[in-house]
Design a protein around this nucleic acid. Structure first.
Lengths: 150, 150
DNA sequence: CACTTTTTGACACCAGATTGCCAAAGAATA
DNA sequence: TATTCTTTGGCAATCTGGTGTCAAAAAGTG
């Protein structure tokens, strides 16, 4: 089975000007499965998420179909309006816009996480924190993992 | 595909005289898509909104068509009458009239947000606040985002 | 271990953003 | 009306941040 989706966690670094190396494997997936050379990067609750154009447009269509509501407006404000398209340079790096970097607290060490049809970009510490929180949660719910056979 | 609409979030600064640099990309969209060199800036509930003349005139037509009512008067007072046209200077800055600045609390750090056919201008703290509020709303309505595939 | 690929840091270059300064225009004062 | 003070806009110098490129370092592969 060849790679079909984004998966795995990668520690990468962001340079002084805000460029991040996207793992080569992800670029392959992007090219082969999504026929694209760019990513739509936007905010999420604790960091950034990057979508292949196809996935982003699919989301936008669903979004447009929603009836007007305060929640819809919140989605617009928090997810849609901050989005920016980023293209790759010759070394496979994308330039993350300053405002997004600032919000996500990206400085030197960042973590890139494959999430099937999207990619998350985290500040290293923030990622460590959620990971730790997840571990804690699993310990409290000891049954779940063994039910899953893990 | 070139940029068709205003999008993205930008941190910019406003000088003592109230001049704001509008991101170069927005000026391109304004020139190419809206054939215009100015913006109509007016109040909104928590900050300022700037419209390309075309969009502003479209709104005014709809407004004129409204039957007279106290609400219509309220729109006049709160949105229409405060509006002022601002042109760009040689450096791509617009001068935001003092009265509007004061109402929106614009001092040093401002945030410019692309909203398709209009542009929002926020005081940095105020923007942080609405963004946080939107995030909260989205958490409460946990279903929505996953329905949208985000 | 040798070789290839990927990642990273460094540098130069350029466009855009910021700042301060100066002059013109306007308002206030006498 | 003459004078001063204030505001506004334009210009220029500077600074910052983004982009492209190169080469060293690191990681991966056979």
């Amino acid at each position: 089975m060849s790679k079909e989706q984004f998966s795995g966690v990668f520690n990468v670094s962001i340079d002084l000007k805000g460029r991040v190396s996207v793992p080569a494997g992800f670029r392959d997936v992007l090219r082969e499965k999504f026929q694209s050379e760019s990513l739509f990067v936007t905010l999420n609750k604790d960091g950034l998420t990057a979508y292949p154009p196809k996935a982003w447009n699919a989301f936008l269509s669903k979004y447009d179909a929603l009836p007007a509501s305060p929640s819809k407006e919140a989605v617009w404000r928090a997810r849609v309006s901050p989005a920016q398209e980023c293209t790759f340079n010759a070394q496979g790096r994308i330039q993350v816009p300053q405002a997004l970097r600032a919000r996500a607290g990206l400085e030197k060490d960042v973590v890139i996480v494959g999430m099937d049809d999207k990619i998350e970009i985290w500040n290293q510490q923030a990622y460590d924190a959620v990971l730790a929180k997840s571990e804690t949660l699993l310990e409290e719910d000891g049954q779940l993992l063994s039910d899953l056979g893990l």
